[in-house]
Design a protein around this nucleic acid. Sequence first.
DNA 1: GTATGTGCAAATGATTTGCGTGCTT
DNA 2: AAGCACGCAAATCATTTGCACATAC
Lengths: 147, 147
Amino acid sequence: MHTRIEQLCLDKGMKMTEQRRVIARALSESTDHPDVEQVYQRASELDPRISIATVYRTVRLFEEANILERHDFGDGRARYEEAGHRDHHHHLINLRSGEVVEFESEELEALKRKIAVELGYKIVGERLELYGIPIDDGDEPKGAGQN
Amino acid sequence: MHTRIEQLCLDKGMKMTEQRRVIARALSESTDHPDVEQVYQRASELDPRISIATVYRTVRLFEEANILERHDFGDGRARYEEAGHRDHHHHLINLRSGEVVEFESEELEALKRKIAVELGYKIVGERLELYGIPIDDGDEPKGAGQN
DNA sequence: GTATGTGCAAATGATTTGCGTGCTT
DNA sequence: AAGCACGCAAATCATTTGCACATAC
């Protein structure tokens, strides 16, 4: 049995090396948004004979094949998640904990398209992230906030 | 007479060097979203005795003082624009020409807030960019966008 | 067997920083 | 005068790449 990602690679006729299999597995098993270093560590646990250069190359290959989606959450390194595996969604980054919350909104998708059309463009890519702090986190003692 | 940015610096009690004044001027005169290299070039034209290290330091200083807004349009370098100078807006990047189109939408702002509240967060930052191609531009984009 | 992938280390490119000197307050 | 600010070059950091060797098909 192989992973979803491995299957996609096979479908696309990629040459499947042990490294790619292992990286595919590491990614398929991830439910978060690991950066390359984390993918490297997870893959290394499955098979230590992997170099980080290969992880960079593979992650890039997968991204170009639309198997992975690359994100940039503002911390300077790229983060990845399996593409198309779930519904179209966006991310809200909890600035207190670093946690990434996924959300989706058909209303939002419609509005985006409407805005683009009004400007005379067809959307072919986008980036939408919200950065927030939990409400009732103790950050705003009483009514001191100035929303 | 000094620029809007220079005035802000003075208000904040910053030590005003000739370099800062010149960088402030270069930025105030810009209506686009220059990267550091461009700010450096524009500032150098006003006064050549400036090093790019100073531009990096100054642009960072201004950003931390909320005088500038930093953007990342996916080309690997940071781009800047004067903060709060105009209404809150977002960017649509024309992938054919690289042109950056600004847009705003109160509907979008409201929706963002609504989404955040439903998730239990208060938005303290965000990033929203659309990447598009002009409608009626002829052929399809090469990158096989499937967003 | 041949094209392609991999490991390693060196190269990049953007940005930051240590240090000695110069300028603002 | 004292403390930042500056210029320069070296240092970082994430990522890419050249090269010699290994491997999938």
